[in-house]
Design a protein around this nucleic acid. Structure first.
Lengths: 183, 183
DNA sequence: GTTTAATTAAACGTAAGCGTCTAATTGTGC
DNA sequence: GCACAATTAGACGCTTACGTTTAATTAAAC
């Protein structure tokens, strides 16, 4: 019978999931070890400390997060189609979308991570801005509306946090978006 | 020399402050006892458990929170003036505004508190809606815009979480609000 | 000023979770 | 099949924080 082994990636993907769903309180070495069915010494063989582990999770997130959404959108042709796809993806209740949310809380006393988050926020807003420009908005308009869009997105997810995502909510999104992005 | 005593209200106001700033992780009995310069047995004399303490803090918040803002706004005459006062108050970086934020996280597995939060959210949105109607928006418009306003407000605070609130941010608020509430 | 009630101090027990050892196991190259 | 490296098991120590218990203090009542 082969020995059960948890690879580094196993730890990271599980940690990524836990953090996305529960924040730093979800990252408990012994509990994760239980889930992976290994002893926690496996963890300390792969990672020096829990803090190092978190840093690896953050790196993991940076590489996969934005790319995942962007690549799915860029298959679309027109700006309008891209925007519709964007809405479909980012307003979906998907636990991993909360990663950055918890990360902001985790980073309260960590300037380095804060700078990273700023960069990701900026990337996302810029990406949206590009689509809006493709749709015919002026650079000025697109700048304002993309930032507004992003803040609205955050507020939206906060409001549905512990709710089922009903059709009601989705249709409200379109009505509310239409208040400031008409197309 | 009189004995140092911490009244029930002392504990609650400190707890309220701690929770607003750091969430449930800020509520640590022994650390609060240090701040109040008493032994933690004072805490356990006033409150049965930490959970009970949290419930009292939540009640405290419910009674003071909304009223505080509303009473300050209702001194104003016109809808427009009220709206401007509202903006001034709720976009200010004021730690207590984060209370509800952390509360949503605390309430993840507590239906009762979730219902309470829903009610508060609704109250706030309805209050804004009333002002918008006073300003001349139709009921329909006011309904949509007040909800949008509230989500935007949440996103705004999330974006400035670990930032100084620069004048830049404040002026952006007005520009962004102007995208969907013109007056 | 003695009794009584309210409130806190000091000390203890307990659990969760981080991190560290050392020994044991399995896989791999030769 | 043996030596060696990679990886995990098991046991331990330490810290933090919750909650309890009993004794001590102060304030209030009479």
């Amino acid at each position: 019978m082969p020995k059960i082994i948890a690879k580094k990636e196993d730890w990271i993907t599980l940690g990524y999931k836990q953090f996305s769903e529960q924040g730093i309180r979800g990252i408990v070495v012994e509990k994760m070890a239980l889930q992976l069915k290994v002893n926690k010494s496996s963890f300390y063989w792969h990672f020096k400390t829990k803090k190092d582990f978190m840093n690896e999770i953050i790196s993991f997130w940076v590489t996969i997060d934005t790319n995942k959404i962007v690549s799915s959108i860029e298959k679309k042709q027109s700006g309008k189609e891209k925007f519709e796809k964007l809405i479909e993806l980012v307003f979906k209740k998907e636990p991993y979308l909360d990663f950055i949310f918890f990360l902001k809380r985790y980073a309260i006393k960590n300037k380095e991570i804060q700078l990273l988050i700023d960069e990701i926020d900026k990337q996302r807003i810029d990406y949206t801005k590009g689509i809006l420009i493709e749709m015919g908005f002026s650079i000025n308009e697109a700048t304002i509306k993309s930032t507004l869009f992003y803040k609205y997105l955050i507020g939206y997810h906060e409001m549905i946090r512990y709710k089922e995502q009903s059709k009601n909510y989705v249709s409200n999104v379109k009505i509310e978006l239409n208040q400031f992005i008409k197309y």
